[in-house]
């Protein structure tokens, strides 16, 4: 396994938690009253929000609209994810 940067390490956590959320989302679309599914969703959603805040504070906004918009347009100060090592 290649060495991961600090950004990548945190991003892996965010990606895997986001993946759990997406899986729950698609499953719940066809099982909207499944209590286990709903509980799984809520658990991961809380974790995702914590991780997203930590990631955004350290490495910049994930969405353009989340840029604070203070001295410089923060959206263009962090790389896009198709660059190697940035995803």
């Amino acid at each position: 396994m290649p060495m991961l940067s600090e950004k990548q390490t945190l991003l892996r956590k965010l990606q895997s938690c986001g993946f759990a959320l997406l899986e729950a989302n698609l499953y719940l679309d066809s099982h909207p009253t499944c209590r286990m599914g709903l509980e799984y969703f809520r658990k991961h959603k809380q974790r995702y929000e914590e991780l997203e805040k930590e990631y955004t504070d350290k490495f910049g906004p994930l969405r353009a609209i989340d840029s604070p918009g203070t001295d410089k347009w923060e959206w263009v100060t962090s790389p896009f994810p198709w660059e190697r090592g940035e995803n």
Binding site: Q15, L62, S78, G85
Partner: peptide
């Protein structure tokens, strides 16, 4: 839709 600056799954190709 709203764009998020991350890939769903990592892609880092050396060669």
């Amino acid at each position: 839709w709203q764009y998020e600056k991350k890939l769903q799954y990592p892609v880092n190709i050396k060669n």
